[in-house]
């Protein structure tokens, strides 16, 4: 049975390779700036939603405030580079440090709350952060935002066009994906899912529930900061409008629509919704009407998210094909 497990793991890395390859090929097919920017946004959203899925899908802790970390990442980068003349790399490091610290400080009291109370607390936190982005004019530029955020460069090679920046974003994305998959199948991943399943039982198995909740919250906050930092580099400017409650909710929607409790669900959700939003823009006023309707229909017909719907389908097909019922256990296994 151990060999069976190994087999499944190898298959997982095959998927990672395939995904990384696809994401590397697409820009060569769609070589224009408009698509490149969309692809970068898609990759950034994927990075953030991967973190959000670890937090919500695995550990069961809801956040309606991740736009705050997205924003903190973007602003930290922008402030460090434009006001203090740091390099873009240091900007990213600063974003991670600041975001991680803020996430830690808010996690300590917030994660004692459960369910909708936690949702409200994270939402309230994000609203406060958003207001600070606007009101702390001296450092954030107020409603004008900050301009002239430089792109990172390495040994004279600047990631300053969308094509070049995409290379960097792609690398970060693949690294985040691999790390998340590693966590998901590990001792820590099981501890997180245990917290979701039953906090009391998790604690009685020796899982320090408070510690893991804080860790995963900080991790997801940091991923959102990294996303924000990359976003600032791409856009060249930051403004508070990019980090509203709507953005927080959109990120959660991506996580849920893709399928919670599976890292690939995050990848699928972020990709599908980003592309859909971009595509629907051509419908002008009807854009969001269609988006809202699709969202409702998607949930009605795929309540487990896209990943869940497809793995159900795959399971059913397998069921049909295996006319001879082997071990009853194997068929349930994929869940």
């Amino acid at each position: 049975m151990t060999s069976g497990r190994r087999g499944r793991l190898n298959k997982q890395w095959l998927w990672v390779g395939l995904y990384a390859l696809t994401m590397a090929i697409i820009p060569n097919v769609l070589a224009n700036n408009y698509y490149m920017k969309m692809l970068i946004v898609l990759a950034i959203n994927t990075i953030i939603v991967i973190g959000l899925n670890l937090l919500m899908g695995y550990a069961g802790q809801v956040s309606l405030g991740h736009a705050a970390f997205y924003g903190i990442g973007a602003y930290s980068s922008a402030i460090m580079t434009t006001k203090y003349g740091m390099s873009a790399w240091l900007g990213i490091v600063a974003a991670i440090l600041v975001g991680g610290l803020v996430a830690y400080l808010i996690a300590i009291p917030a994660l004692r709350l459960k369910g909708h109370y936690l949702a409200m607390a994270t939402l309230g936190f994000a609203e406060i952060v958003h207001i600070l982005f606007i009101e702390l004019r001296e450092i954030t530029g107020g409603t004008d935002g900050l301009y002239g955020v430089p792109a990172p460069s390495i040994a004279g090679f600047a990631f300053d066009t969308p094509q070049r920046l995409y290379v960097l974003v792609w690398m970060v994305l693949v690294i985040c994906l691999v790390m998340a998959l590693n966590i998901a199948k590990s001792r820590v991943g099981r501890a997180l899912r245990a917290v979701h399943g039953s906090e009391i039982a998790a604690a009685s198995m020796g899982v320090d529930t408070a510690k893991y909740k804080i860790q995963v919250f900080v991790l997801s906050g940091i991923l959102a900061c990294v996303g924000g930092s990359l976003y600032a580099s791409m856009a060249g400017y930051v403004s508070s409008e990019s980090f509203t409650l709507t953005v927080s909710i959109t990120l959660v929607t991506m996580a849920v629509c893709g399928g919670m409790g599976n890292v690939w669900g995050a990848v699928i959700g972020a990709s599908t919704l980003t592309i859909m939003q971009e595509y629907l823009k051509s419908y002008n006023d009807y854009n969001l009407v269609i988006f809202g309707a699709i969202l409702i229909l998607a949930m009605v017909f795929m309540p487990q998210g896209i990943y869940g719907a497809f793995s159900d389908l795959a399971k059913k097909l397998k069921h049909r094909l295996q006319a001879i019922p082997e071990t009853a256990g194997e068929q349930h296994a994929a869940s």
Binding site: N182, S186, R187, V188, R190, G197, G206, Q215, G261
Partner: peptide
């Protein structure tokens, strides 16, 4: 208080939490 989001074997593996040590960083790096 079964962890309904895990299979039977994984449920028991959670019990091994006390006996194992890998932290989030070593898990992340695999």
């Amino acid at each position: 208080q079964i962890f309904a989001n895990m299979n039977v074997l994984e449920n028991v593996m959670v019990g091994r939490h006390c006996q194992t040590k890998s932290g989030i960083f070593s898990c992340m790096l695999g």
